[in-house]
Structures are given as C-alpha cells and as structure tokens.
Design a protein around this nucleic acid. Structure first.
Lengths: 215, 215
DNA sequence: ACCTGAACACCGTTCAAGT
DNA sequence: ACCTGAACACCGTTCAAGT
C-alpha cells in the first residue's frame, strides 16, 4: 500500500509519481487510495517517514564525535537506498510530528552529554539536523529529467570553453571538477558519489562543533 | 516575462505556480509562454538563476573567513527575499551551467588563496557550496499548505504530550524547542527566523574549515 | 470497512494557423 | 518574431453509490 508508493518513487522519482499511476499499479481505482491517505503530499510524507525510520546510529553515545559521524553516514546510506526522495527530506523536515522523536531525543541527549548547554545546545542541535541532511541531499539531487545526453554534452562544452582569463582558478582545475564536483556535474551522487568531499564534510562539521563547544 | 514568474512564485509558491496561471497573469494564452522558455522546469531554473545573481560578497577576498561569512549571510538575505524558491536551490544546483560561474570562480579563488590544495581544495569547495545552501533552505522550508492552524494545534499537542520517561532531554527543553527549532516547528524561517542557530552554524562551518586546512 | 464509477476543475505541452 | 485557438493526454480530489 505504502510499500508500493515507495517502490514507485524509487523507480520514477517524485516528479513522475502520480496517485493515478499508483492506483493502476495496485490494480485499483484512483479514488481507492484516498481511503488510506488524504492527499498526494501525505503519501510523500509517509514515504519519507518510512525511509527515515532506518536511521539508527549504534555507536556508543558517550563518544559524541563518533556518534555524529555514524549518524551522518547512516543518513547517507538511507538516501543512497532511496535517492529519489532526497529532495523531499529538506521540506518534510520543517516539522513532521511523524518524525522519529526517538532519534531527536538521542541527538539532543548525545549533545547534552557532550557538554553543550542552553542556547548553544539548541543551536548545535539545529546544526546537526541541517548538516546531516544538507550535503547528501544536494549530492543526490536529480539532473533535468530526460535530456541527459544533450545535457552532458552542453556541460562539457561549458567546461571546455571556459575563458581562462575570466575564470583562472576554475580553468586550472577544470579536469578535476568536470562531473566530479558541484555545479559542474551532469550526473548525480547515484552514479558519481562525492566520497572524498563527504568525508571532509563530516570532519569539518564535527571539528566545527568541537570549537563551538569550547567557544 | 520572467519577472512575472518570480513575482508569482513569491506570492503562491512553486507548488501552486502553473504555466497557465502565469499566462493569464500576463494576459496571454498559455502557449505563448512556450515561445520564451521550453518548459515549466526551465522557467523555475531561470527564476532561480535570476535570484542567485544577487549573491555577491564584497568583503576583502584575502580574509577567507570573513569572505565566507559574508557569502553565507548574502545567500541567506537572498533566500529571505524569495523564501518560496528555497526548495529549488538544492536540486537546481546539481549543475546549472546558467549558474553564476563568476561566483564559483571567486569561491575557488578565495579557498585557493587561503591555502587549500589539491583534493582538499575541491572538498572545501563542495563543503562551501552545500553549507551555504543547506541550513537556509531548511530554515525556510514551507509547512504543509493550507491546514496551518490545525497543524499548529497538532504540533502543540505532540509537544505537550511528550512522554518524559521516553524523551527526557526533549521534554526538558520543550518550551525552548516549540516552534523555535527544527522538526518541532509549525512555522518556517519567514516568520520564525533561526538567527542564533544560523550564527552558530556559520561559526561552526568556518572553524571546521580552518581545522580542515591544517589537517 | 473498503472500493467503484463518474465527474469536476484543473494541469503541461504540441501544433497548425494566424499576424 | 510573436501569439492564437484548439486539442491531447494527463493530473489531484470529491462524492454518491455500491458491496
């Protein structure tokens, strides 16, 4: 029922996910879906919550840095299992009471035990929430739907045609950047993962939080 | 023409933005739009690029920490001017050759001059891109469209009804968290900005990058 | 409790034709 | 170059009615 929605989104993405097609896939009339969930957005929210349920870092919470590391990598693993829901994670996390409050509690508890206090604790919490989601969402953002080869060719053209006078640093690193780093990619993290950058990202955030703790 | 699209999205959001309504607003037949831009997504991409053009940190690039700080705050100012495009920034930045290559060049140049080298330079670059966008996008994510008061009431209920045994840390900070921090908000950054957390976020990312530089 | 059948008010996009 | 008019193939959602 909601398994089917998840499966369909994994296959075709949110843009091409429709209630009617979902109904057909279940061998049922479109209106039947509305007995279970009141709206298309509710289906999407349910799918997100369903996937997020798997995030569960199992490291010792006493070592907050290791625990956060694990959280970041867990989240990335979940998104890599369902990359097409990536764009939803941002919006759906405004507030979803359906969210796993257990996970929220554990994040707060880990930071609390680490020594964060008062406003800094809450700021650190917001930072953890956003940074967990941030990089990975963008890493797995989808390229424009169906013109993929033309799009790739276009991007290659832009990179090859870079004006070295106007963009010297860009031009110097063009070979390393092409399809391998943000804004100059034509494939996403599904086919071209940004492992090295993600590793550095996790390091950066955790070291930054360590500084924040002793500010 | 594209001003109108921007205006419309600012008013009603992407979800309720339609080519047909845009045409009507311009006193023209729907098909007329397609003379200028080939598709709805192309319109959205154009609007994003249009808004992003305003990001232009004017601090001395020699002080990379101050420059990045400025970049973060510039970006946030842009999103706060057009909060409803926030959800697009993530996906549209996979790669958009329409993106301001000048800004990309300057980010790379600033990091290069700061002393980042080779793979670390490119990782730092990816980190700057994602962190610039990450927090602010989530801060301004929209709540579920039109049930706002019911939704607020629901969230208040969840927070009031928190089981103190199961969620001790959450319960202890419930007053400070309610509508003021992620996952437990029912309004977004437009009405409830997360100033303090954003300030700490910027500090955290920059201090983290400083550590990365000397790793 | 769960689904059908049909309808309503919309969509994005295409295309020949006009000016 | 720029727009009309009309059509195509879809949408999400509602609602009375069936079982």
């Amino acid at each position: 029922v909601l398994e089917a929605a998840t499966a369909m989104i994994d296959e075709v993405g949110i843009e091409r996910f429709s209630v009617r097609a979902l109904a057909e896939r279940l061998g049922v009339f479109p209106a039947a879906i509305y007995w279970y969930l009141p709206t298309r957005n509710a289906i999407l929210a349910a799918v997100v919550n369903h996937c997020v349920r798997d995030i569960d870092p199992r490291t010792d919470p006493a070592d907050w840095k290791a625990w956060l590391r694990e959280l970041f990598y867990c989240y990335r693993a979940v998104v890599r299992r369902h990359p097409r829901i990536a764009p939803l994670m941002n919006s759906q996390l405004l507030s979803n009471a359906g969210a796993d409050l257990g996970l929220i509690e554990r994040i707060l508890a880990v930071l609390d035990r680490a020594g964060f206090e008062g406003e800094t604790l809450l700021a650190a919490y917001d930072i953890v929430i956003t940074t967990t989601v941030g990089f990975v969402t963008m890493e797995h953002a989808s390229p424009p739907a169906e013109n993929s080869e033309a799009w790739a060719e276009h991007m290659r053209g832009v990179i090859d045609g870079l004006d070295e006078a106007a963009y010297p640093t860009l031009a110097r690193h063009r070979a390393a950047l092409a399809n391998r780093h943000f804004v100059l990619r034509w494939e996403n993290g599904v086919t071209v993962p940004l492992e090295a950058s993600f590793e550095a990202y996790v390091y950066t955030v955790i070291e930054g939080l360590r500084q924040l703790l002793t500010r």
